[in-house]
Amino acid sequence: MPIPRFWREIEQRYKGIGSRCKNCGEIYFPPRKVCPECRRESFQNMEEYELEGTGEVVTYTEIHEPHQEFEMLSPYILAIVEMDEGVRLTGHLVNVDYDEVESGMRVEASMRKLGEESPKGLIYYGYKFWPIDD
């Protein structure tokens, strides 16, 4: 991905900052400028909202044919996670064997290295998920 595009999003990727519609209270991540439910009533009426970082697995897969930048990790587990605030994210699920993954499993998001633009270039950071007991 071109560097400026990544840079523009970096705060959300690092900190899990989304947005909340002040009109209906719905929380969005990635942040949206307009709430799809309230549309123009929400324009310029959205505030920043920081996710707690915990949620549960909705669905998952193990990828055996990744894109080039993820080849070193292959096979790896990818999951869609529903955060406790109701928003859903896609990300790697780590620190667990594939056989042990289940829908509904509790997970926590934490900041991890995602990939590299080139051996000397920008390193991407973002969230990955791992299982927690709670």
């Binding site: 990828i63 894109h67 990818l78 790697h92 973002g126």
Partner: peptide
């Protein structure tokens, strides 16, 4: 691309 592929999705 920004919210699926970058996070490892094919």
């Amino acid at each position: 691309q920004e919210w699926e592929t970058v996070f490892g999705a094919t």
